[in-house]
Design a protein around this nucleic acid. Structure first.
Length: 316
DNA sequence: GCTTAGGCTTCG
C-alpha cells in the first residue's frame, strides 16, 4: 500500500495549538511537470507541545498571505482540520493542504497580549484559545524549548562568530555574483566592530550607492547566499545571521592584520535561516520606529529613498 | 480539480 494513503483527518479537538519552530520559510515550489498551473507556496514547520513530541507540519497554500504568520521560533500556531500522515519509518507529520484547513498564530512571549494573527476576516477565537496560548507560553519557557535557537541581537550587541537574528530596515541591495547578494541595512544602533568593505558595481545597486559619514557608521553590510527577494525600505527579520571575522591587511602597516567583521546569511534553510518581511504592525517595527527609522514609501523609488535618507541626516 | 516537498543541524 502507498504510505501516503495512510491518512486520517484530524478535527479541531485534536489539532489544537502547538508551539511552533519554523525551520523553513514560505517558498514557491517548482512547477508540476506537464502542467502550466503555478504550484502552491510551501511552509514547513517543526512543532511541539506538552507531549514533547516534535513533529513536522507541511502547509501548502496558493497565496503567500494564507500561510501562517510566523515571525520567530517560539511563536504559537493553532491548526484546524489538518491531516496526519505516518510513513513506514514512523515519521509523523501534519499536512495543511485540505479543505477546511485553517491556521492562526500567536506571539509566544509570556505575559504579552494574545493577538491572533490570520489573513482571514472570520475565525473562531475565544477564552479557551486564550488560555491555551498562555499555557503553551508558560510550558515553553519552563522547558527552555527555545534555547537552541538564535536570539535577536541589535547591531550594537553583535559578537564575532555568533549566529543571531537581526531586525532591521533594508536600505540598498546589489548582486555580488550569481549566488550572492549584498544587503545594506540598519537598525538604529552602531556595530562596535569595523566592517569589511564590500566592492560592488554601482550600476547594479538598488537604492543609494553610498551613504554619508554619520549614516555610514550605522549601516551593516550583509552577504546573503540565497535568492531572497526583498524590497528596499522593507522591515526585515533576518534569521541565523552570522558575524564572520576576516583578517585584513591594512595598507602601509606591514605585518599588521586587523579583524574586520562581515555579516553572512549562509544558503539553505536549516537552523531557521531565512529572511522575513515584517508587517508595519509588528512590535519590533514599532521599536525601530522609536529609533527614528521609518518607512515613508510603500513602493519606493530611488529618488524617494534618497530624499528620505537626506532628511534623516540630522536625526540619526 | 486537491499535486506539490519532505522531515535538514551552518562554505562562501
Amino acid at each position: 500500500m502507498d504510505p501516503t494513503c495512510l491518512l486520517k483527518t484530524l478535527y479541531k479537538t485534536i489539532a489544537s495549538i502547538y508551539t511552533c519552530f519554523p525551520n523553513r520559510f514560505c517558498t514557491r515550489i517548482k512547477m508540476i511537470p506537464g502542467s502550466c498551473l503555478p504550484t502552491d507556496y510551501c511552509s514547513s514547520l517543526k512543532i511541539t507541545d506538552e507531549s514533547n513530541q516534535k513533529i513536522v507540519c507541511t502547509i501548502f497554500c496558493r497565496e503567500m498571505d494564507d500561510h501562517p504568520k510566523i515571525f520567530q521560533n517560539g511563536d504559537i500556531i493553532r491548526l484546524h482540520s489538518s491531516k496526519e500522515e505516518n510513513d513506514m519509518v514512523g515519521v509523523s507529520c501534519l499536512q495543511g493542504n485540505n479543505v477546511g484547513f485553517s491556521v492562526v498564530t500567536f506571539d509566544g512571549a509570556v505575559g504579552g497580549a494574545v493577538e491572533p494573527r490570520s489573513s482571514r476576516k472570520f475565525f473562531s477565537f475565544d477564552e479557551h484559545d486564550r488560555r491555551r496560548v498562555e499555557e503553551l507560553r508558560s510550558w515553553a519557557v519552563s522547558q527552555d524549548v527555545c534555547s537552541t535557537v538564535s536570539a535577536a541581537v541589535p547591531l550594537s550587541g553583535v559578537q564575532p562568530k555568533v549566529y543571531f537574528d537581526l531586525t532591521c530596515q533594508l536600505l540598498a541591495k546589489a548582486p555580488i555574483d550569481t549566488t550572492c547578494m549584498l544587503l545594506r541595512v540598519w537598525d538604529g544602533t552602531k556595530c562596535p566592530y569595523t566592517q569589511s568593505d564590500v566592492t560592488i558595481d554601482p550600476d547594479t545597486i538598488e537604492g543609494p550607492a553610498s551613504f554619508s559619514g554619520t549614516k555610514k557608521s550605522f549601516i551593516a553590510n550583509i552577504l546573503v547566499f540565497d535568492n531572497h527577494v526583498v524590497c528596499i525600505g522593507a522591515f526585515l527579520r533576518i534569521y541565523n545571521l552570522r558575524a564572520v571575522c576576516e583578517s585584513v591587511k591594512e595598507p602601509g602597516l606591514l605585518r599588521m592584520d586587523t579583524d574586520h567583521l562581515v555579516f553572512q546569511l549562509n544558503g539553505g534553510t536549516s537552523f531557521g535561516k531565512g529572511i522575513r518581511v515584517l508587517p508595519e504592525s509588528s512590535p519590533d517595527v514599532q521599536k525601530l520606529k522609536r529609533f527614528g527609522i521609518r518607512k515613508p514609501f510603500s513602493c519606493p523609488s530611488l529618488s524617494a529613498v534618497l530624499s528620505w535618507m537626506s532628511s534623516k541626516d540630522t536625526n540619526v
